[in-house]
Design a binder for these strands. Sequence first.
DNA 1: ATCCAGGTCGGTC
DNA 2: GACCGACATGGA
Length: 328
Amino acid sequence: MTGRINVSDFNLALTLECGQAFRWSRHGGDGWFEGVVGREIWRLRQTGDVLETEMEVPALPKSTAVATMHDPPDGNARIRRYLALNASLPHITATFPAEDKHLHAAVQKHWGMRVLRQEPWECLASFIASSTKQIVQIRQIVAELSRRFGEPLAAFGRGAVPRVRGRAAAQPYHVGGRDEPRPYRFPSVDVIARASHTDLWNCKLGFRAKNLLAAARMIDSGKVELHGLPAMEYERALEELLKLPGVGEKIANCTLLFSCGFDQAFPVDVWIERALRRLYFPHRKVTARQLRDFAHSHFGPYAGWAQQYLFFNERTAARGGRNAAPQN
DNA sequence: ATCCAGGTCGGTC
DNA sequence: GACCGACATGGA
């Protein structure tokens, strides 16, 4: 399934590589990105204001009649929703405080970056795995979890030569090797809930393994209901996520922002804390709590978007490179 | 080698 | 409340 989407005020590479999702990679070298969303493999390429799309959608077995309840929206609609293309970036940035030149500089510098709408469980699990890990390691953990526990996606069957746009791929995957990387679905809640602590540990989770396992069990047993979160009030949804072991305010807010549509959620990690202290409280002593209160009152209803611009800005600045993309 | 990473938790004072 | 160390692992 292929398609084209007209886009504006959008930068695909920035959006996929600014640190909010961990399963996208450049594919080939001709501008294509490939990722797994749900049980589908998506390939995306932006040329100016046109977004080219390719989706590999596995056919559902006839026996599973679950999907007949309602037809899923068409492919491009799912992509638009995932990439938040229906939101107006000029409208969003216009809600930022006009006098905040630090923020507006970051917005201008990284114009087109959008906050994704990911699947809640994958997002939550990824950020449970993220604590005191570099982004490159989070990607490794998520890949390993998917490889060990996730359903293999059929498009690149065992032994099949993967193809890139109709021709044989040079080496996007290590075909033939025993550990041939190929797309796997991110493992579902019940699979993780039934996994052994040791098997999770072996995915390089370290001390995070017990948290992921316990969180999956709580969700699987219905003690926490992820699908209900988007319909809740923000404070209530936050409270719900904080019930999960290993989930504090930072991880909870990442989940609410990146997967539940709470544009005001403002995750405070070491990078954003550095940025806030440097830009808004130079040479002043402020607690982490004060920083959080400031963020929620200062940035407005799209504070989470502001956070993502400041976060990425801080990371790229730290690399000392003008356009240097973060490598970790 | 040493420091630090998209943190959280349970102890202290 | 604020502060602190433990918790594992590996990249830079």
